[in-house]
Structures are given as structure tokens and as C-alpha cells.
Simulated scan of single mutants.
Amino acid sequence: MEMQSVGAAFIRPGQLLTDRTALSAARRWTQAVSEADGVCVIHLSPGADPCEITAELREQGLRASPNHVFRGQPLFFGGPASRPFPVPPIPHKPGRSHSDVVVGLLDTGVAKHPWWAGTDWYGQTAPEDGDATEGSQAGHGTFIAGLLARQAPGAALRVHRVLDGDGVSDEATVARALFRMRERPPHVLNLSFGGHTFDDRPPQLLGDAIAALQDTVTVACAGNTGSDRPFWPAAMPNVVGVAAVDASEERRAPYSGYGTWVDACARGDWLTSSFLDGGDFAGYATWSGTSFATALVAGALADAAKSEPAKEVARRLFDSEDARQIPDLGVLIPASL
């Protein structure tokens, strides 16, 4: 789909997100409306500026946002690896441990892999993700699923494909997927994607969708921007924003986002995990980025949530005086892989 750059952010041109309460006020700019899962996408008349209309509607106390574009893995600043590299098979047996914890994974989908062959959760996921192997970033979700599976043994994944094969989505797609999760909310939710907003304010419709998952701990990546500019949804106050540290777990990875809005960090450099089977790859890869540091944090929370509610785990972990804090990176979560 088409996108344009506005205010150092990407948006879908000619699209405005609202809820029903704003439809009447936006009528004079409206060419068509598509409504689904709590989100209205207004297709604007030619020449109408979604950013200007957003500001006008917000001044009236209404909820509105341009349809911001979100991206998965691409490294915007430095870093050791902007793409995955093949590695030999990684020894891992799923084992027989079972957890009642459910981890939501919104990403590019999850491809078939020996690590979850025969699991109940993959059998439920596979039909939706039949095209999870197509595109330059198609293995992103499969890689994250492997990190979660090893970090939280026995936990079930609930996978929804919101990023296309090139790792691109938008606010409307993500918000609608989140609203659909309200009837069966996961304990922990992994969002390894994000983006900037045109005004550096929280994207309102996405914020509403996350807030509706009241008992879910939402974990999101701080972005591979190498800057302290807020990256959404990670910068939201009800989201655990995750930065990446290097392999020493002592220093910020040079590509990682950082700032006072970041809550936690974990290793992001040269992690190994499950991947696609094809081309140069035989089902395994090494890759770097805040996307994968996020999976380590989400997995650690999910593993601890076997014995207490996930919200309590997060509160205890991030409010503890004993936790090791790194300035502008938050609490360090050591990798257990």
C-alpha cells in the first residue's frame, strides 16, 4: 500500500482514523468510511490533509489520528546486522513442560518449524498464516516465536498476522487486531514493530485498543532508530518499551532507541532462533534488533507468569529497587537462552 512521509513519520495518504463519535464532525472531508472492530477509517476527499484534520478534531475533544505506518525489523541507524544470516541447526527440544500462560504475537505470521510441530497453538495458527514465508521480512515472526518458545517453555502462542512480508503495517490494521483480542486476551502481548507519529504524540486509536486489554502486559520494541525520539507503541505509559543492549549486556546497542520512555532492555545483538526453511536457510538464523530484545523480555514475563498474574510480575520486576537499571534503557532483563 502507498505511504507518505509527514513530519518525519509515515502515514497512509488520504486516510484518517476515528471512532463513531467523530464521524459527524468529519463529514465535510469524508469521501467514504470503512468501519470494523472499533475503528473507522475515513477516506478523505482529494486535497484534504489528515494531519490538519486530526488537529482540528482533537481540539474539539474528539479521537482522531492519521493512519500511521508501522514497521518491523529494518535498522535505521548502524547495527551489526540489518538482515538475518543462516546458522547451523540450534539444539532445542520443546520438552513436556506445560504452562497456562498465553503470549499474543502480532507480527508477520509464523511458519512451520520442528520446534512447534504437534503443538496445539500452531495447529490453530497455521491456516491464518499460510503466506508467512513470502517477503523480505517474512521470517521475522518465526524468529520471534522461537525466542518466545525458548524463553517461556510450555507457554502457548496466539499468533495474528498484522505485518506483511516486508514488515509493514499501519495503525488501523493493528488496532483492529487488538480489538478482536478482547474476548480472549493473552497474558502477555509481543509487539515487535512500531513507528513515529506526525506530532510525536501517542496514536489515539491504537492507545484505546491496548488499554482495552486491561489484564494483558503489552511489550513493544523501542525501535532501531538510534535516537531518543518516542517510538510508538513502546513509548505509551501502559506499554513496556524495550531497548537492545549489545552481547556484553553492558552497553546500548548502537542502533537501539532509548530515552526516559523506555522501561526495559535485553540483549539484541546476534541472537539465534528459528527461521524459514528455504534458500540459504535451513530453518535457523542469527539476527539483531530491538524486535528480538522485546521477545526476550516478553518471554521472561510469560515464564514468570506461570505462578502469578502477569501484571503482578511486571509490577514487581520494574518497581524493584534491586533490579539493575541502565540509564535511558530501563531494567536489564538478562537473556536465559
Rank of each mutant, 00 (worst) to 15 (best):
A138R: 05
L147H: 03
R158S: 14
G154P: 07
R150N: 01
F198M: 09
V168R: 01
V162W: 04
R180V: 04
R161Y: 04
M181C: 14
D200N: 15
S192K: 02
A175D: 07
A132L: 08
A155M: 08
V162R: 03
G194H: 06
L189V: 10
F179R: 14
E171V: 00
P185G: 11
L163P: 05
F179W: 15
A156Q: 13
A177L: 08
A172L: 12
R184E: 15
H140R: 07
R158I: 04
R184T: 14
P203V: 05
Q137K: 13
F198W: 12
I144H: 00
D199P: 13
L191M: 15
L163M: 10
A149H: 01
S169Q: 05
G139F: 09
E183P: 01
T133I: 08
D170L: 07
D164R: 08
R150K: 14
H196F: 15
V159P: 08
P153K: 03
H196N: 12
S192R: 01
Q151K: 07
H187K: 13
L147A: 06
T133P: 00
R180D: 12
D164L: 04
R182G: 07
H140L: 07
V162E: 09
G194T: 05
R201F: 01
A132E: 04
R182W: 02
G195P: 02
T142E: 07
I144P: 00
Q204P: 00
S136E: 12
G165N: 10
S192A: 15
L189H: 05
T133C: 12
R158A: 14
H160L: 09
P185T: 06
D164F: 07
A149Q: 08
R180W: 07
P185C: 11
P185A: 11
A145V: 11
A156M: 09
A155C: 15
D200Y: 03
A155K: 00
P202N: 10
Q204M: 15
S192G: 13
N190W: 01
F179K: 09
G195H: 06
A177T: 08
D164V: 03
G141D: 06
R158E: 13
V168K: 00
Q151W: 00
L148Y: 02
G141Q: 07
A175F: 07
S169P: 03
V159F: 07
S136F: 02
H196K: 12
R201D: 12
D164W: 11
A145Y: 02
T133A: 13
H140Q: 08
L157A: 05
L147Y: 00
L178V: 12
P203G: 05
L191N: 08
D199C: 13
E171K: 00
A177S: 14
T173S: 10
P202C: 10
E171G: 03
R161V: 02
L189R: 06
A152H: 06
G165Q: 10
L191W: 04
A155F: 03
G195A: 11
S136P: 02
S169N: 05
S169M: 08
R182Y: 02
R176L: 12
G167M: 08
L148C: 09
V174N: 00
R182D: 03
V159K: 04
D199M: 10
R158Q: 15
D164H: 09
G195D: 10
A155T: 14
T142K: 06
A152E: 04
R158T: 09
D199W: 03
L148N: 03
T197A: 11
H140I: 11
E171H: 02
L147P: 00
G167W: 09
D170N: 15
G154W: 11
G141W: 06
L157D: 00
R161K: 15
